[in-house]
Amino acid sequence: MTGREATMSITVEVRYFGPLLDETGVAHETIELELPARVHEIDSRIRTLRTGLAACTYRLAVDESLKEADDLVTEAREIALLPPFSGG
């Protein structure tokens, strides 16, 4: 973020999966986010709220689409935190 864009505060649902459930104790919750924001900024906001995630490895998906750390998010309804998969 450059700080020059107009921002808006939105409510999003954050969902936790796999081993992250042991760190958060909840499967989902709603939080307030300022958008637009980079994915790493959103991640920092979530880690501030959920300090148990500090040592965890995961990727963020915004509205069911996996994102990279520098991707810009302009709108979101759901943020999913996805640790390494273990299906099969």
Binding site: A61, P84, F85, G87, G88
Partner: peptide
């Protein structure tokens, strides 16, 4: 591809009080 790309998680159940997350 399933193991690599599909967001599925397995929790191995040992007993009623003990479990661990599966690692591929």
């Amino acid at each position: 591809g399933i193991k690599r790309d599909v967001p599925i998680y397995g929790r191995e159940i040992i007993d009623e009080e003990t479990s661990r997350w599966k690692v591929n």
